[in-house]
C-alpha cells in the first residue's frame, strides 16, 4: 500500500484521538512507532494490521472507523490539500460525483504508483437526482471511506444529499447518492489558485 494511504490513517488517528492513541495503536498493530513515510510503498499487510488495531484500540466498528477516516480526509486542516485536489473534480457537487469515474486517473497524474479503487458512476433510470457508485478494490471497506468523504464534500459544496452504503455484492461496494438540493447552503469557498500559487 502506498505510504500516503498509511500516513493518512496514521494522521487521522493522531489528529482525532491524540498521539498517545496512535502510539497504543502502533504497538497493538506492530507498526512503526514513528509513523509512515508518505513517499514510500509498504506491504499491504501493514495496512490491514493498522485497520484491525484501529478497530480494537478505538473500540468502534470497522465501518464507522472507515467513514470517520473519510470525513477526516476532506475536512481536517492538516489534509486541506486533499480537499482542494478533490474540488478540482467539478464546480458543483453533481459535477464532482460524475467525475468520480476519473478519480484514479486524476490520482495517477499526480502519483502514478498510487493505486486507488476503480469507481463507476451509474445513473438511476428516470431519476435525475439519484445515482449509484460502484467501488471496486481488492479490499472491502473503501466504500465507507467514500461515504464519509462524500458526506463531507456535499457540505463543502453546499449540497444537501442522502448517502447510503448498500453493501458488497461480490465484486463491488455500492453507494447510493440522492441529491436533495445542489445549492442548499453557500458551502466553503474554493479558489483555483491555491496557496502554492501565491507569491
Amino acid at each position: 500500500m502506498h505510504g500516503l494511504v498509511n500516513r493518512a490513517i496514521q494522521c487521522f488517528v493522531r489528529d482525532t484521538y491524540g498521539a498517545a492513541t496512535w502510539e497504543a495503536l502502533a504497538r497493538e498493530g506492530d507498526l512503526p512507532l514513528a509513523g509512515f513515510e508518505a513517499m514510500f510503498v509498504y506491504d499491504d499487510a501493514v495496512t490491514d494490521r493498522m485497520l484491525d488495531a484501529a478497530v480494537s484500540v478505538l473500540g468502534r466498528p470497522r465501518d464507522t472507523v472507515l467513514e470517520d477516516l473519510g470525513t477526516y480526509l476532506v475536512s481536517h486542516p492538516n489534509v486541506e490539500t486533499l480537499r482542494r485536489l478533490l474540488r478540482f473534480g467539478g464546480e458543483t457537487f453533481e459535477e464532482f460525483v460524475e467525475s468520480l469515474d476519473d478519480l484514479p486517473r486524476r490520482a495517477a497524474l499526480a502519483l502514478p504508483e498510487l493505486d486507488l479503487p476503480a469507481l463507476e458512476v451509474v445513473p438511476e433510470d428516470g431519476r435525475d437526482t439519484e445515482l449509484r457508485v460502484a467501488c471496486r478494490w481488492p479490499r472491502a471497506g473503501f466504500g465507507h471511506v467514500l461515504v464519509g468523504m462524500l458526506r463531507t464534500l456535499a457540505d463543502d459544496y453546499g449540497a444537501l444529499v442522502l448517502l447510503d452504503h448498500e453493501g458488497w455484492d461480490g465484486d463491488a461496494e455500492w453507494i447510493r447518492i440522492t441529491v436533495m438540493s445542489g445549492a442548499f447552503s453557500t458551502g466553503r469557498p474554493f479558489r483555483l489558485a491555491g496557496s502554492w500559487a501565491l507569491p
Binding site: T81, L85, F88, L109, L192, A193, W196, A197
Partner: peptide, 9 residues
C-alpha cells in the same frame, strides 16, 4: 492547475 497543485503537494 490540478496537476500543478498535486505536484506542489
Amino acid at each position: 492547475l490540478y496537476v500543478l497543485e498535486a505536484k506542489a503537494t
